[in-house]
């Protein structure tokens, strides 16, 4: 699981707290596109369209969002069958119960079981439940994933390490319009004694996209 975000004890040079390399930024030569961002931002602030504080707050909000929010939703669904029913019925309303403000997000939650495996893609761009999971991984936005998962999902899932038996039906969800999708992975066996917080630790971002299962404790 090289792409999960549970180990925050990195002290490796050149890697971020989540263990990924930083993009060139402050210390590299200014690019045309960075100059454009600075110019646009300053013009928008001077014209009173946005305030500097709003920009800072929006960036900070982006940094606060992470798959941990989605994992909380999944863990609650595992321990509370009535919540799970409400989540599957109307995901947008259900996440409010956990204090997660959906904003523009319109959420459909889909449940993985022994017989059904769900996986999410956006073939036309890269729609993703950002308000619940943070920003999408790079591979989610790439041509390879977007092209292939709607035609050969089993092969793609196998490349992610997930071999599904023929008896499991695959359901691919293409986010073509206004809805965003959360996969509720199946609860692993042997987790009866765990509390909600410990259960949430088992739920990775990739499991909520549908390219992985929940971890075993």
């Amino acid at each position: 699981m090289p792409h999960d975000h549970h180990d925050h004890s990195h002290d490796t040079d050149g890697l971020s707290p989540s263990g990924h390399p930083y993009r060139p930024d402050q210390d590299h030569k200014l690019t045309r596109w960075q100059a454009m961002e600075i110019a646009m931002r300053e013009l928008l602030v001077e014209k009173g369209i946005v305030t500097a504080a709003e920009i800072t707050e929006t960036v900070e909000q982006m940094d606060r969002r992470s798959p941990a929010d989605g994992a909380k939703v999944v863990a609650r669904a595992w321990v509370d069958p009535s919540f799970k029913a409400r989540l599957l019925e109307n995901g947008t309303e259900a996440i409010r119960e956990l204090g997660i403000e959906p904003g523009v997000l319109k959420l459909i939650a889909v449940e993985n079981t022994a017989r059904t495996h769900n996986v999410v893609v956006c073939t036309l761009c890269s729609c993703y439940p950002r308000n619940l999971l943070g920003l999408p991984p790079d591979w989610y936005k790439q041509r390879a994933y977007r092209s292939r998962v709607v035609k050969t999902p089993r092969k793609v899932l196998a490349e992610f390490g997930l071999e599904l038996p023929e008896s499991t039906q695959v359901r691919v969800h293409d986010s073509t319009a206004d809805m965003r999708y959360l996969v509720v992975p199946a609860r692993p066996e042997g987790t009866e004694g765990l509390d909600e917080a410990a259960l949430a630790e088992l739920v990775s971002r990739d499991a909520m996209i549908g390219v992985a299962t929940a971890r075993h404790p």
């Binding site: 709607v150 050969t152 999902p153 089993r154 039906q169 695959v170 691919v172 969800h173 073509t176 206004d178």
Partner: peptide, 26 residues
């Protein structure tokens, strides 16, 4: 807006991995 369910058999014919698998889109 409608969510439409297609079978992989309908979408990909003989190239489908498993024709009973499903794709849903809005």
């Amino acid at each position: 807006l409608l969510r439409v369910r297609f079978t992989m058999g309908e979408l990909w014919g003989a190239e489908a991995e498993n024709p009973a698998d499903i794709l849903e889109a809005e």
